[in-house]
């Protein structure tokens, strides 16, 4: 099993799909290395705020919406996973 099929990756994919109501997207459609925003999955700035709130609720991770590092954490699924592994409060 590859690294991207672990439980946390699947949980994050489901979190993204449910939180952002991506009706036509299945977990398998989210490439862990592809950009989540703009091209790739095509998410926008409101989705970023929504996802930030979901990370806060689920994992207790608070992010600064203005910080450059937040942009990096949200660049793709693997970056998001690394953030959660490093900062999760539960």
């Amino acid at each position: 099993m590859s690294e991207t099929h672990d439980d946390l990756s699947i949980e994050l994919k489901q979190l993204i799909i449910e939180t952002l109501e991506l009706e036509d997207v299945a977990p398998g459609d989210i490439d862990p290395d592809a950009p989540l925003f703009g091209e790739g999955l095509g998410l926008d700035s409101i989705d970023a705020l929504e996802l930030g709130l979901a990370l806060q609720k689920r994992f207790g991770i608070k992010l600064d919406a203005e910080a450059e590092e937040t942009r990096r954490h949200f660049s793709n699924l693997n970056a998001l996973k690394a953030l959660v592994e490093a900062r999760r409060a539960d």
Binding site: L20, E21, I46, D47, L49, E50, L53, Q56
Partner: peptide, 9 residues
């Protein structure tokens, strides 16, 4: 509770 940014928008 915080409100949903999407809903707010």
């Amino acid at each position: 509770e915080p409100i949903s940014p999407t809903r707010f928008s």
